[in-house]
Structure formats: C-alpha cells, structure tokens
Simulated assay, not measured.
Amino acid sequence: MQAFDQIQELWQKHEVEVKVSADEMLQQVKKEVGGIKFKSALNIIGMLVSLVAILSVWVFFHFESWTTHVGLGITAIAVLIYTLILYRDYKLIANNDITDHPQKFLNGLKTYQLNRYSLYNKLYWFYTIALSLGLIFYFIEVLSSFTIIQKSIAIGLTFLWILFCSTLVRKKVMKREKQRIDLLIEKFERINGQFFANE
C-alpha cells in the first residue's frame, strides 16, 4: 500500500508539458473567432427580425390609443439602438484579419470584450427599462379588453420573463462569453509571443 501511495504522490508531482505549435493554435483561434462572429451575426439577425415584427404589428394593426403607438415606438427604438450596438461590436472582430494585423486584431478583441461587458451591464439595463416602458404603454390599450385574470396572467408572465432574462440568462451568458473571450485573448497573446520569439 505504501508503494501505491508513493507512486500516486510521484504521479501528482509529475507535470506534463503540452506543446502545441503556433499553427495549430492559430487554427484554433481562427475557429473560435469564427464561432464568435457567427453567434454575433445570429444575434444581429434575431434583433432585426424582432424589429421587423414590431414594425409589422405597428403598420398592419389598427390601434386607437396614442399610448400603444408610444409603446411600440419606444420598443422599436430600443431594439434598433441595441442592434446598432451589436453591429458595431461585430465589426470589431469581423473587419480585422488575425494574420494580417495581429496587434490590431488583439486590440480589437480586447475592445470587443470591454464593449460586451458594458453591453451586459450598463446598456442592458437601459434596454430592459426601455422595453418594459414600451410594454407598459402598449399594454394599456391591448389589455383593456382582457378580464382581470387574463391581465394578471399576461403582466405576470411578462414580468417573470424579463426577470428571468435579466438575472439567470444574462449572468450565464456573461460568464460563458467572458471565459471564451479571455481564453481567446490568452491564446492569441501566446501565438504572438511564439512568433516574436522565433523572429
């Protein structure tokens, strides 16, 4: 038994150095950047679809109350602003090539990371408040024909959905995206270090 403990102790002290070539790491980084670009593009497309849906409701349905128009306007403006911010961030990583301008790409990636942090913290609350305000104005006319139980269910489900997205979903997405971008920056800095060490 003592021999087993010694072998286990020796095994735990043993460090394995994994060597990954700069080319392999560069391919991994390119793949991860491609994934981030794709996800960002999907977010932008989703926001544009939401904007079109809101504008379609506004154009094709007849509303009598001015509050509904104000609510739809606030919601459309909030979605448009958020979409423009997402597009600005997408351009940071989409317009720079990793191999042509490594330092420019790395700076863009770090700026992207800071922008995403700001988006999920400060700007997210602007977006949530604007959407909530838009829904409040929209619900004044739309829910007027509902019974009290139907109004309570509609308002309660909307509130719970916003609360769920603002807490659990936002935190999980923030954490996962931060880890992914941190790892990407670390890999890219190591690649740059290997390139400069070889020169």
Rank of each mutant, 00 (worst) to 15 (best):
M1E: 10
Q2S: 11
A3D: 09
I7G: 02
L10W: 15
W11S: 12
K13F: 07
K13A: 10
E15I: 09
E15W: 01
V16L: 14
E17K: 13
E17F: 05
A22G: 14
A22K: 04
M25S: 10
L26S: 14
V29A: 12
K30C: 15
K31P: 00
K31I: 07
E32H: 11
G34P: 15
G34D: 11
G35D: 09
K39R: 12
S40N: 09
A41N: 15
L42R: 11
I45T: 15
M47W: 03
S50G: 12
L51C: 00
A53C: 14
V57Y: 00
V57A: 04
W58Q: 05
W58H: 02
V59I: 13
F63Y: 15
F63S: 02
F63K: 00
E64W: 00
E64N: 05
W66Y: 02
G71Q: 03
L72T: 05
G73V: 03
T75V: 04
I77Q: 08
I77S: 13
A78Y: 01
L80P: 10
L80E: 01
Y82D: 07
L86M: 08
R88T: 11
D89N: 12
L92N: 10
I93R: 04
A94W: 12
N96C: 12
N96L: 14
P102W: 02
P102V: 06
Q103M: 05
Q103Y: 04
Q103L: 06
K104W: 11
F105E: 08
N107R: 10
N107W: 06
L109G: 03
T111H: 12
Y120M: 07
L131S: 05
L131G: 06
S132D: 00
G134Y: 03
L135N: 04
Y138K: 02
F139C: 02
L143P: 01
S144M: 08
S145W: 01
F146K: 07
T147Y: 04
I148L: 11
I148D: 14
Q150F: 01
Q150W: 01
S152W: 08
S152H: 03
I153S: 03
I153W: 04
G156Q: 09
G156W: 11
T158S: 13
F159V: 15
W161Q: 00
I162L: 09
L163G: 06
T167N: 10
K171G: 11
K175A: 08
E177H: 00
D182G: 11
L183S: 13
L183G: 06
E186W: 15
E186H: 12
R190Q: 14
G193Y: 02
Q194C: 05
F196W: 09
A197L: 15
N198C: 03
N198A: 12
E199A: 12
